[in-house]
Each structure stands twice: as C-alpha cells, then as structure tokens.
C-alpha cells in the first residue's frame, strides 16, 4: 500500500469527510457517499461502480462540465463500495484526483507549497502575462477564483499581502499550488487590467465555470466584488 493511503486509513476511524464525500469503514471494505446523504437509506441511493463514479463527478446538476473536482457542486444521490484499500484509493482518485497524495504531502515537516510568484515565474507563452499582476490585484484574483463558493480546497499557498486559508477552512483537502483554472483566470485578469474595461452592468445568466471570456462567469463576477472591496480599502487608507 502506498504511504499516502496508509496514512489516510490510519486517520479513518469510522468515518471521515473528505471534500464533500463521507468515507465509512464497513465490516468489510468501505462505503463512499455524498456527505449530504450521510443519513439516507442505502436503497434510496444509486450505487455507482468504478469509473461510473468518475463520469458522475464530471458533471454538475444540469449537465455542466466540472473543470475542478473540488468545486462544491458534487451531485448527491449515490453510494459506492470499495472492497479494499486499493479500490478505495481508485474511487477517491476518481472523485478528487491527487487529493489523498496532497493531503499526505501537506503533513510533511516542510510541505511542498508553491507560491503564486514561484508558480507563475516558470510559466511561458500565453501565461507569462500572469507574472505582471501586482500583488493586490493578484490577491483579489486569488480571493475570487479560490472563493469557497467555487473550491473547497484549503489554500496553503499565497501571494504577498494575502493570507493562506486558516486551518480547518473549507475541507480536509489542501491546495499546495495554483491550479490550471487559477492560471487561466489570472491570465484573463491581467488582460482585463491592461484594457481597463468597465464591468458590464447587464445582469446575465452565469456562464460556464471555465469560460473566463464571458463577463457573466461566476468567478469574474466575484472578481468585480473583490476589486470594489480593494478600492474601498484603498480609499480608507
């Protein structure tokens, strides 16, 4: 057994909630279900097997693609059974890819955390522009992109002037470095800052989670609020 799973099983007494998933020990093996279904009768839940769980986790209610598995919109109504630790490892991998390994790595004496500056400094091509964001704007972009409405990972990395998430915030799953959505979002913010375009006043339905070109993207709307808060703070100062 890999050391990350060994540590995970050691932490799993009878039940552990990992992201939005409750993992329970059974007499033989393990059961996984959405945390909101913890008290639901098993007969009322759809049993998903193996890769069915990955397919299930790819779509939000309504069929929208979930580009980030740690988004707080995992659909409920299912349960999955794992006969042993290897099967459990795979099911957790389908639901939260890489998360058990990150959870284990975060417990090291020196966790492998990569800051926004370290991460963006090594980027090339179209993402080089992300190095140009000033700390305050980068902070607003991170607050918006990593808001608890969009991601349940506890952010351990940061940028100058922004605190990492507090212990116990969001979920057990740590975030050790910026993700592809953050990188894409920072690129969009950098371009918006260059153009200094005013935000649209028109109320619009939310665009797809990963579509940062749309002003109605939920993270872009959130960024508008974060910038307003930043401007207000600067006015007070």
């Amino acid at each position: 057994m890999n050391p990350d799973m060994r540590a995970f099983l050691a932490a799993l007494d009878t039940e552990i909630v990992f992201g939005q998933v409750a993992v329970r020990r059974l007499e033989r093996g393990f059961e996984l279900r959405h945390e909101s279904d913890r008290s639901a009768a098993a007969d009322n839940l759809t049993t998903l097997k193996g890769t069915e769980l990955r397919t299930w986790s790819q779509q939000a209610a309504g069929g929208a693609f979930r580009p980030l598995k740690s988004a707080p919109n995992l659909r409920a109504g299912w349960r999955a059974l794992a006969a042993d630790s290897a099967a459990l490892e795979l099911l957790l991998h389908y639901l939260y890819p890489g998360a058990v390994a990150d959870w284990f790595a975060a417990q090291a004496a020196a966790p492998p955390i990569t800051s926004y500056r370290q991460f963006t400094a090594r980027q090339t091509g179209m993402y080089r522009i992300t190095t140009m964001l000033q700390d305050a704007i980068a902070g607003a972009a991170i607050r918006a992109c990593c808001h608890v409405d969009f991601c349940l990972k506890r952010r351990l990395w940061s940028v100058e002037g922004l605190e990492a998430d507090a212990a116990g915030a969001k979920s057990l799953i740590p975030c050790l470095e910026p993700c592809a959505l953050l990188l894409e979002f920072a690129r969009k913010v950098a371009r918006l800052e260059q153009n200094d375009a005013p935000p649209s006043e028109e109320p619009q339905a939310d665009a797809a989670e990963g579509d940062f070109d749309a002003p109605s993207n939920p993270r872009r709307k959130r960024f508008g609020l974060e910038k307003q808060a930043l401007a207000a703070k600067r006015a007070v100062e």
């Binding site: 890999n2 580009p67 890489g98 390994a101 993700c179």
Partner: peptide, 12 residues
C-alpha cells in the same frame, strides 16, 4: 488543464 495536474501527479 485538469486534475491531477502535471505538477501535482508525482506526489502520489
């Protein structure tokens, strides 16, 4: 572009 990311995968 998706999890697990290239920069993340070797940790596991």
């Amino acid at each position: 572009k998706q999890e697990p990311y290239v920069w993340q995968v070797l940790r596991g």
